[in-house]
Design a protein around this nucleic acid. Structure first.
Lengths: 353, 353
DNA sequence: TTATATAATGATATCGGTTGCATATTAATT
DNA sequence: AATTAATATGCAACCGATATCATTATATAA
């Protein structure tokens, strides 16, 4: 069907080895024959078959990325970072989506192995106790880099942001503005990214002598846009609601914002709000959101760089464990922080009517 | 290095043919031997090498997608639509980005061919006169589906939205609100998606007896976020500025919105604004944007469905040319449309001071 | 019992390249 | 002229699977 090197060889009366060498710029070929080969190749519109090539070279120049979803702008930016570097270095990218399902995730990882990718970047959402497929990668010396969250029980490369520091900054900011009752909306996952943010939250409170109260840490059900809505409502229905809320990500914060406004309250006048992620939407909201920005793109690009280096050095590099620094972006959703006590009264009043 | 079928064969004292059959669920194998093979395969953590398999089956179960960029939420949603279907049908997805560069685009298409993808989805940005690589795909019977924009001189499958209808709806909406001077900000491309929108714009004006004025159609330089900003400023500096502006996409509209507000004017009170695309951001803006929604995800998923059907029917299907219907989403950026003439005066006043 | 159908397996070519080694040709050295 | 080196090329094995065809073992029919 398609043109093979052998076809070119026959036309020119040479062997396919020579054709192969000519097309691979091997100096062992005579300049003249090389030219002839290239001419015929062009004329026949020859395309090399990388399957055959890779089969023998053991290189596909392809990396895989496994993500829990692809709709959030978070994963989106990761892909961007990864793609940019992969492309620059001459690697193709296979995109795999696990749909937040650990079993699917495992399948995707296996699939990538079967496709013989040179390495993979994994946003691993499986439980840290059930990560056999990651172990197998390590055992079989297949280069991989974890991203966004790491596994405490596996010594491997990863690129994450310093979530402890990020949450700490956010909460400290609220405390400095005078807040003492700071709600925290989290998600029902055991990932290091959330665990670390909880740790940062507690660290800030402790540092300023504020007691950590369980009722102020609420779990929002599913990962979805505007899912902070319901949880925020719960906060607003408390007898003694928080004067500030820290959302574990911006999507939750957006939901929370809606809930607050629907209740007839205002941000930041009545309740201060901090998010996490600095989505591209966040500064466009009715109340521009104060949030913790993660260098998401950079996370992707660093992961890709590390992975590719590992591939090209044949995995001899020792694991790199990168914690990128997040940054607090102060906008309008926390206000100036005066008269916290007065506000509290107003909020209670509004809610009890 | 890695475990091969032959290794399993040797352990069990059978031939590799038998192992292959067992692992492929071929009924020709004895149930018992199949079990043995599966057991050993599991024990050795065997992974099939798809390169070898594909080399002979001529199927990679992989499709490629070529996009001009990956940062816009537009292409993002396309990817989502494509990925969902590809995944469901058991195809992996290779992501290629042309970075708005026709030469790079050509390279990516060649790369996909070399990787022997079963087919590809192409958001083609090259000029319609220089689309040799698309011709070659057709000639060589490699399944492909164009997306977002089609090529007038190539009879092929494509999935686009009806841009004539979309623009027509938007402009008609403005006309019905009383606008007669309607500015149009376009982009400097010759793609069918923009040409068709221009056609829709003109069609609406013609239908209501409004003359098309060249000075009211302005081209915004580069494709980037908020790039409508400068062009909108130009409109505002005209002696007789438009009372409404139709932006060829929401990103331009967002830029335009900024420019208008910076000039001390208000949307929709002073100037009406319509976008195109219905980005996820657009309803979150300070002034929720009236816009034309395209079923972007659907475009991706339809393209994937058509492509895969084509692949699995060995390309015997005849080209499908799909025009999906867009939808006008009316929000707040056009207002109620009363007292257009008064507004005009106010705008002129503000600008000349 | 022999012939025939059925089920299970193996040997081997193949897919389209790459690569090591042998060989042929020409040029350089002594 | 003989020896050695350098340059080009071909042959054949190989990568790891699949697929065709031949073969063997077993079951069924005549």
């Amino acid at each position: 069907m398609s043109v093979r090197m052998e076809d070119i060889a026959k036309i020119l009366g040479v062997s396919k080895s020579t054709v192969s060498r000519a097309l691979n710029n091997n100096p062992l070929v005579n300049e003249n024959t090389k030219k002839k080969v290239l001419t015929v190749a062009k004329r026949l519109n020859f395309r090399k078959n990388y399957l055959a090539r890779s089969l023998i070279t053991k290189r596909t120049n392809t990396i895989g990325i496994v993500l829990p979803n692809i709709l959030s702008s978070y994963t989106h930016e990761i892909v961007y970072g990864v793609e940019t570097v992969a492309n620059k270095k001459g690697y193709a990218l296979i995109l795999c989506v696990s749909s937040d399902d650990p079993k699917k995730e495992e399948k995707e990882i296996h699939l990538l192995r079967e496709k013989q990718v040179d390495g993979m970047i994994i946003f691993f959402i499986g439980e840290s106790k059930h990560c056999d497929c990651i172990w197998e990668l390590k055992q079989d010396k297949i280069p991989f880099v974890l991203i966004d969250r790491y596994l405490k029980n596996i010594y491997s490369d990863f690129v994450v942001t310093d979530n402890i520091a990020g949450a700490y900054m956010a909460v400290k900011h609220l405390i400095k503005l005078g807040h003492k009752r700071i709600g925290f909306i989290i998600e029902p996952e055991g990932s290091t990214s959330i665990l670390d943010r909880i740790e940062g939250y507690k660290k800030a409170l402790n540092e300023f002598g504020i007691k950590v109260e369980k009722e102020l840490i609420k779990t929002s059900p599913i990962r979805r846009e505007a899912n902070g809505y319901r949880t925020m409502k719960e906060f607003l229905l408390m007898k003694n609601p928080p004067t500030a809320v820290f959302a574990v990500n911006d999507e939750i914060a957006i939901g929370a914002l809606e809930a607050i406004e629907e209740q007839g309250l205002k941000v930041p006048e009545d309740i201060a709000l901090v998010g996490y992620d600095n989505l591209r939407v966040s500064h466009l909201l009715k109340v521009p959101l104060t949030t913790v920005a993660q260098p998401i793109q950079e996370m992707g690009s660093r992961a890709a760089e590390i992975l590719i280096e590992k591939i090209e050095k044949n995995g001899i590099t020792k694991p790199q464990r990168i914690f990128l620094k997040p940054k607090l972006i102060i906008r309008e959703s926390c206000g100036g922080g005066k008269n916290i006590s007065k506000r509290v009264k107003k909020v209670r009043l509004l809610i009890n009517t």
